[in-house]
Design a binder for these strands. Sequence first.
DNA 1: CTCACTATTCTTAGCGT
DNA 2: AACGCTAAGAATAGTGA
Lengths: 177, 177
Amino acid sequence: MTSKKKGSSGRQRIRMAKIEKESHRQVAFSKRRAGLFKKASELCTLCGVEVAIIVFSLAKKPFSFGHPSVYSVLDRYRNNTSFQQQSQPMENTATRSELSLVLSQVEEEKKKGEEMRKASEMAKWSVDEMSLLQLQEMRYALEELRNTMVVPPPSYMNPMSTGFSCIYNSSYVHASS
Amino acid sequence: MTSKKKGSSGRQRIRMAKIEKESHRQVAFSKRRAGLFKKASELCTLCGVEVAIIVFSLAKKPFSFGHPSVYSVLDRYRNNTSFQQQSQPMENTATRSELSLVLSQVEEEKKKGEEMRKASEMAKWSVDEMSLLQLQEMRYALEELRNTMVVPPPSYMNPMSTGFSCIYNSSYVHASS
DNA sequence: CTCACTATTCTTAGCGT
DNA sequence: AACGCTAAGAATAGTGA
């Protein structure tokens, strides 16, 4: 037992961009997908809420998590967004459209500093999730982008509209009153 | 500057069960939901995959994350599970039914040791996500449960069936060949 | 591909504001 | 409520089997 157990350099920071090496990326996908599902599971248990997650791998293989089930959550989501029950406040429904895709592509091509990374990550969120301060930061980053590329208009828009909705920096936002 | 900045005892372990205190649970929900969405965002960026997440709070308010968008991912998922394109291998589609709900309730009522916790968390996963070893562990935990309660039969079952499917310990499993 | 290990980074529970 | 802080706990990149 002349153990030389020090084979690993431990966890290293990684660049927040698409992992180049195929095999490396596959490993990261497996690990992080598991981590994501575990986090979702804990959220369900600790807070007593319902969660559905759908992930499509690069090979377009679907992976799903659902509590109580994927379908029950999706059905509820569909009903909420399609028929808009007035009995519920529902102030938190918001939808993003094309922008996040654009941003992620930019993110891959040009790796700017922390500022850019932060904005592009936030851009994938439902906008209602952001604080005003975060919106300010994102807005700044987006305005720099605007000169660089053309953002296509959203091709679809779900017909739920009794509340507030607008296009904010190419991002479709909806929140019922 | 007789600074007494040591007001916090730092992070403490918490019991993996529904948080009792309402306000406490609400805070945890906000923080962990943000953490979940961030993890999802990183998964998208690092691995170049598509992800959709839908969360319903206790008050049934929807929160969503989607890349490139919630709808595009959901549409793809619907198409895959409804019409079953044969061009794709699709070995990873699996669906859970009632079991996870039952388990989570048990989890709340009786807090057994690590063994039980581990099994009930895994139970919320799509079964294809588990290794054989994990299935063994879960099976053991479930067999103990069986004597304790009645599991209702799944009330729905999506009609995609060209591959493998079975009921495994009250859990509906599907994987196309 | 899956599993184990571990140094290191990241997340978050508990408080204060 | 939302935001900042901090230390303890949890996740994971790199590595080997």
